[in-house]
Amino acid sequence: MSLDLSDVKRLARLAQLDLNDTQASKTLDKLNGIFALVEQMRAVDTSGVEPLNHPIAAYQDNVALRLREDAVTEPNRRDEYQQVAPATQDGLYLVPKVIE
């Protein structure tokens, strides 16, 4: 996959970035370089390679991650926070619909 200059200008407009032609062409080169790297990584045969839960596990089998207990430490203050919101419904914030 590769982009052309019109794609970069469209992305810049969607991101509300003001890019001149020089900046857009530099961005195009960088983005195409990233896509080329991704394609190169996709070409590597990874069949038979087990995923790792931690990168160091590739070198040391006895790694035990120190994970904290998943426990609630803060009180539920949703009602207090939503009192200042312009609009809420069923515990959710309501926002205007934005479609370009």
Rank of each mutant, 00 (worst) to 15 (best):
A64D: 10
D70M: 01
P51Y: 04
T46C: 14
V44W: 09
V44K: 15
P55E: 05
A71T: 10
A57Y: 05
T73Y: 13
D61W: 03
V63R: 01
T73F: 13
L52T: 00
T46Q: 12
D79H: 04
E50L: 02
P75E: 09
V49P: 03
T46S: 13
V63P: 06
E69P: 00
Y59P: 06
E74V: 13
Q60C: 08
N53A: 09
R66D: 12
A58S: 13
D79M: 04
N53Q: 09
L52A: 08
Q60N: 07
D79E: 05
E50Q: 06
R68W: 06
A64P: 05
P75I: 11
D79V: 02
L67S: 11
R78A: 12
N76C: 07
N53G: 06
N76P: 15
S47M: 12
D61V: 00
R68H: 08
L52N: 03
H54I: 01
N76S: 09
N76D: 15
I56G: 04
R78F: 09
D45H: 11
S47Q: 13
T46L: 13
A58H: 05
V44D: 10
V72Y: 11
E74T: 15
E69R: 13
P75F: 10
D70H: 07
A71F: 14
V63N: 04
A43V: 13
T73A: 04
I56H: 08
N62Y: 01
P75M: 10
E74I: 15
H54T: 02
E69Y: 10
E74W: 15
T46D: 12
D61F: 01
E69T: 12
N53F: 11
I56M: 10
D61R: 04
G48L: 00
D61N: 07
A58K: 02
T46E: 15
V49E: 08
H54F: 05
A71W: 10
N53D: 13
S47N: 11
A64M: 11
E50C: 01
R66T: 07
R78Y: 08
A43P: 12
D45K: 13
L52Q: 07
R78P: 14
V49D: 08
A64I: 10
S47V: 03
L65Q: 02
G48Q: 00
V63S: 03
H54E: 01
I56W: 14
T46G: 14
A43H: 14
A43Q: 15
A57R: 04
L67M: 13
D45P: 05
R66W: 11
N76Y: 12
V44Q: 14
D79S: 05
R77A: 03
H54S: 04
D70E: 02
A71P: 02
S47C: 07
L67N: 14
A43F: 08
R77Y: 07
V44L: 15
A57N: 14
A58D: 12
L52P: 06
H54W: 06
R66F: 14
R66C: 09
A71I: 11
P55H: 01
Y59L: 07
R77D: 06
V44R: 15
H54N: 04
D45E: 03
E74F: 13
A43D: 15
